[in-house]
Every structure is written in C-alpha cells, then in structure tokens.
Amino acid sequence: MHRALILAVGTALCAAPLALASPAAAQPKASPAKAASLKLAAFKAPRNALGQPDLAGYWSNATLTPEVRPSALGERSTYTPAEVAKMEGAVVEEVKEGNKPTDPNAPAEAPKADAAKIRPEFAAAGGDVGGYNRGWLDPGSSVMRVHGQPRTSFLTTANGQPPTRLPTAAPQPGFGGGRGGLGSFDNPENRSLGERCILGFGRNAGPPMLPNGFYNNNYQIFQSKDAVVIEVEMVHDLRVIRLNAAHRTDGLRPWMGDSVGHYEGDTLVVETTNIPQIQAYRGAWKALKVTERFTRVGKDRVLYQYTLDDPTVWAQPWGGEYEFGPLKGVIYEYACHEGNYALPGMLAGARTQEKEAAAKGGGGAQ
C-alpha cells in the first residue's frame, strides 16, 4: 500500500504578453478560482509515441472526500479552507491513535479504539476493519481537489446526492449493492465476489471507478494502439478497454461490463454497457450505460468524470467527477486467490453451527 498525495492547483501563470504590456503593479490580482482556470488552460496534455494523450502511469484516487455529499452540507460543493485543515489534520491524529501498539495478550473481546475517533466507514466494518490496525489502512489523507477546488462529494448533482428513482424502477438492493454474500453460508458461490477474490470489494474496478475507503485505491494505466488497460491493485483486476470497437451483442456480461473507448482531443471517452446484475450500481444494471472521461489536466493529475444513464431507473443522466493523483511508488501483486482461508473457515463454521443446532433441536446457521 502506498499513500497517494493529491496535489492542489498552484498559483496562476500570467500570460507573458500581458505582463510586458503593463507594469506589474497595475495587474489585477486573480481570484483562486480564476488562477486555477488559467493554469488549466495553460497546460497541454503530453502525447505518447502513438500520438494519444498520455494517461499512462501509476495513479491513486484515495481521498477523504466521499462519493455522496454529507446531507448537512446541502448544496455546498466545496469545503472552506478551515474545514480542509481540520479534516486533513484529523488524519494525522487518527494515524497516531491507530498506530499505537496492540497488546498481544489482550482478550478477543477487548475494547477497540475510541469509537468517537473511528471513521464511520471503519466502524461499519467492525472498528479496526476486521482486525487491521490503522497502520494497515490507506483510505486517503487529503480532501479531493477538482480544478483546485476542495470538493465535498464526487457527485455533481446540486445536493451531491443520487437523484430520485423513478416510481417504476425495481427496488434498490440493500447493503452490498447486489453483490451478495451477506447472511448466506450455504456454498462458496453465495459469498461475495470480494471474498471469492474475483473482484475487489467496493467499486475500485468499476465502472464507475470509485475508491473503497480502506486501502489499495491504486491503479496503473497502459495504452496501446488497440486498447487501454487499467490495472486495479485491489484483487489485481485488469480492466481492458477496447478502442474504436463495437459493443458485443452475444448477451454475455463480463464482470466489469463491456467497455469501448475512443479519443476526443485530450480525452479518453469510455462507454460501458452489458454490466452484470451482480455489479449493479444502485440497482441499475440491465439498461445501464456508464460513460467515463479521462483527461490529463496537469503533470500529476487526471480528471475522471462519469455519467450514469439508465432510463428505467432515473429520469435523466447524472454523475460525478474527481481527479486521480500520482502514486508515489509502483503496484505489486495483490495475491488474493480462491484459496483464501477465510472462505472455507466461514463455511466450516456454518456447518459446525448447523450440527450444534441440530443436536439441540434448533435451526441452522444464520
């Protein structure tokens, strides 16, 4: 795991002819937003040997910014400087607290870290995330900047929330996003894709590609004449995007859908259809089309935008955006495999519970 540093946009570059035409003292001072805009306009995406906009390299989307905006923030799309300093400063204390030595002789039911100091997503996973100390986690230490603005959410809807579903839309599945694996221990196929080491938990591979809030939110992008391949650290997935091709019509739905891409100027545009039900996004899958745009907007930044379009679930397309930052290091193999001892352990435990319940004349495992 490596900690990624998301870089904010710096001071604007002044145009040389304008600077020469007037004394420096006479130049109006640009606002931070205008300064960011000027610098973005001045950046020219590099090209690779094939003449494509160069997206290759190691990237990370680890961040403190959630996909969905906290409802208390309403329609406020950015944090204040004071809020950013507080959030990013709290991570330093979080790491100090989480990295304190663990007593190897402590009983199994020993209290975990102060619940008030645990992020909500960590608490939802059992406090220390299945027994991991904070030192094993890399959820992100910076608020996500987009065009230099510290965003309160990835979603770009007015309130940063998913839009209202159509009355005719199928019910949205509960926790797990339709991936299964919760409460069923009958056989390995009923467990989640993450537990079976088929796809990472969360939506790291996508589409849309989203950080999981825990660790391994890292990627490597490769480009060739006929395809773009994104290596996803979580479970070592390889997402293959075929260039200038047609979508498949054989009815098969690959784990990450059927992704076809093309270049529009400095942007890689990817359209994905044929998404399998187990990879449903907020209940949408059969008619879901995800359009992603990857644009190199700085030496160390790739703007990622995604649009979700399913007329059977939502009245109109919607989506979000964030920026990949540089990964300070490389990606090594994530050696998750079907031999993961936790999987047979859970199933064996369920069989033991069933035997014990049968001996007592009760029910089986939950």
Rank of each mutant, 00 (worst) to 15 (best):
I6F: 03
A16V: 11
P23L: 03
A24C: 07
A25K: 04
A26S: 05
Q27V: 12
A33H: 06
A41S: 14
A56L: 13
T63D: 06
L64D: 07
P66L: 14
G74W: 07
E75W: 06
E75D: 15
S77N: 14
E88M: 13
E88A: 02
G98Y: 01
D103Q: 05
P111Y: 02
D114Q: 05
P120F: 01
A124K: 09
A124M: 14
A124F: 02
V143D: 03
T152A: 12
N159I: 00
G160Y: 11
Q161C: 05
Q161D: 06
P162G: 00
L166S: 00
A169T: 00
F175I: 13
G176C: 02
L182G: 05
F185K: 07
D186C: 04
P188Y: 01
C197M: 13
P208W: 02
M209K: 13
N212C: 14
F214K: 15
Y219M: 15
S224K: 06
V229G: 07
V229K: 12
L238A: 10
D250L: 00
G251R: 05
P254A: 00
Y263Q: 15
D266M: 07
D266T: 10
N274M: 03
I275V: 09
I275W: 02
I278Y: 00
I278P: 04
R282Q: 13
V290T: 03
T291G: 00
T295V: 06
G298W: 02
T307E: 09
V313T: 03
A315S: 11
P317Y: 00
W318M: 13
Y322W: 08
G325Q: 03
G339M: 11
N340W: 15
P344E: 00
Q353T: 11
E354L: 12
E356Q: 14
E356G: 12
G363V: 06
Q366F: 13
